[in-house]
Write a protein that binds this DNA or RNA. Structure first.
Length: 153
DNA sequence: GCCAACGTTGGC
DNA sequence: GCCAACGTTGGC
């Protein structure tokens, strides 16, 4: 069973520093609108799991820190809010389509582990990050987790 | 900002 | 149920 994950965020939208500024350094990870990512979030991401916080679509791409899942999946409230950009008229409150979790910041790396570094390490060739670039919630193996952790220290 | 990759939608 | 059109993601 997977315990480790990688969550992508565009830092212009929500960065690890934004997470650090939340009360209790905890934030709702919402707005996931991709079915594969949704399935991971809803069915496999569980309380106490560890998460690599990844900055995408920006100048410095890579893993910037570690968070912990502090609330397991619950329906993403934004799907029911017509004012929200994440509003989904096709979602039914009795059978919600989209889910979110809460995460709490555990550690911000003093220096990030860049995508460029990751690409240079053969043992990380099979990371989903490399195989399926667009998936925003993805499992990380224990081995991959350890390697990236070591790179960050 | 561009563009390739790829997921989603909707007409047939 | 196929597939073209369209929209979005994400590295560069």
């Amino acid at each position: 069973m997977t315990q480790y994950w990688l969550f992508k965020s565009e830092p212009d939208c929500f960065s690890i520093d934004d997470l650090a500024q939340q009360s209790a350094q905890t934030a709702r990870w919402d707005g996931v609108r991709n079915f594969q990512a949704r399935n991971f979030l809803r069915d496999n991401v569980t309380l106490g799991n560890w998460v690599f916080f990844y900055h995408s679509r920006c100048k410095a791409i890579g893993v910037v820190g570690i968070a912990e899942v502090t609330r397991a999946a619950y329906p993403d409230p934004q799907q029911f809010d017509p004012q929200s950009p994440y509003f989904d008229p096709k979602s039914d409150s009795d059978n919600p389509r989209w889910f979110c979790v809460d995460i709490t910041l555990k550690r911000k790396f003093s220096h990030m582990v860049s995508l460029e570094q990751i690409k240079q390490i053969q043992a990380l060739d099979d990371m989903m990050l490399r195989k399926q670039g667009r998936l925003s919630i993805q499992p990380v193996s224990v081995h991959e987790w350890q390697i990236i952790n070591q790179l960050a220290t």
